[in-house]
Structures are given as structure tokens and as C-alpha cells.
Amino acid sequence: MWKNIYLWLDERIGFNDLNKNLLDRPEPKTTWWNTLGSASLFLFVLQGLTGIFLTVYYTPSPDHAYDSVQYIMEGVAFGWLIRGIHHWGATLMVILVFIHMLRVFYTASFKYPRELTWLIGIGLFLTTLGMGFTGYLLPWNQKAFWATTVGTQIAGTAPYIGEFILKALRGGPDLSALTLQRFFSAHIWMIPAALAGLIGVHLFLIIKHGESHFPTKDD
């Protein structure tokens, strides 16, 4: 029976083609440096999963945010693990995405025909930083509060539109319940959606063009 189900699916999906195009692509000679993009992707998925689990207990209100994080750490089985992975995964993801970008720059892989892949990569780097920036406020402890005060204040120093940016980020002139709520919304809905979309296009382009040859001394 399994064989029939497999054949039915295969006829409509074409596992062979999929396999050939996704996993069995021809590659130039590659190194461990070529694995950083996949490592970033893995961390994105991991952050998504642990983040979803965190929302089971986390509540984004100034009255309860801190207590709910405390509860995750002490009251829930393996809460320390889920939050720990999300916490360290966040830092690691920023680092990995950045090194991946450095390697692409160093090996000149951003040149024709991969300029668009590079541009989208810049978007990916910025949205990843956005995840870190918005996530940092959520535990609503002293460090979170003052880091966001400073971060939004810096954005506010932009000439002419600074004050508007500050108010738009905070949802008003002060750091308030509105700030926490909109950072939460950005952190779990808007930025992840943008990130997922960008990743999709990024991967499509990578599969379309294949990995680049690293330049040799003669190039």
C-alpha cells in the first residue's frame, strides 16, 4: 500500500526531478565556508520553532511579561532549555549570517549573475538584526528596557524625521505598553514573515545559479 501511495505522489510531484534539482545539483569544489548559509537557515528554523513554543507561556504586557519569562525559566518543564536555545540561537544566528556575508564578499561571489542574491542577502542581514533588536525588549527586564530606550533614542537622532521615527518605533513618545506590544508583533509576525519571504527568493536564486566557483590566483 505504501508503494502505491508513493507512486501516486511521485506521479504528481516528481520526486526524481526534485531530488535532482534540490539535492543532487552539480557543485564546484566546495569548502566548509559554503555551509554557512545552510547553517543560518537551520538556525532560522530553530528560532522559529523555539519561538513558537515560547509564545505558549510568554505574554507581552508590561504587567506580566517579566513574570511570564520567570515562569518559563522556573515553572515549566524544560522552559530553561527552550528559552536557552532561543536566547543563544539568536546571538549565533546574527554571527553566522554575518560570517556568511563576509565569505560571499571575500570570494567575490556577489558578482554577475548573483547581484540580486547579494542584495536580498543584505535584506536578510538587516531583518535578522531586526529580530534581535525587537526580541531583546520582550523579557521586559532592566537591561531590555534601557537597551530599547537607547536604541530607539539613537534612531531618533536622524535629522528632520528623527522624532517621527522614534515615536513610530515606540508607539508614542515614551517606552510603554504600546512599545512592548508592537515589538512583540514585529518580532513574531512581521519580521519573520519578511525573513521567510526573503529566504525563499534567496534559495530560489541559489538553486537557479548554483554555487559560484571560488576565484583562483590567476583570476
Binding site: L46, L49, T50, F53, V56, G75, V76, A77, F78, G79, L81, I82, I85
Partner: peptide, 15 residues
């Protein structure tokens, strides 16, 4: 390693 603890994490209040 991640999956099993996640299940406990979800059902902890029921236990």
C-alpha cells in the same frame, strides 16, 4: 533532543 523536551514543556501544566 529538542522534540522530547518540547512535548514535556507543552504538557507541564497538566502534570
Amino acid at each position: 533532543i529538542i522534540g522530547l523536551p518540547s512535548v514535556y514543556y507543552l504538557i507541564a501544566p497538566a502534570l
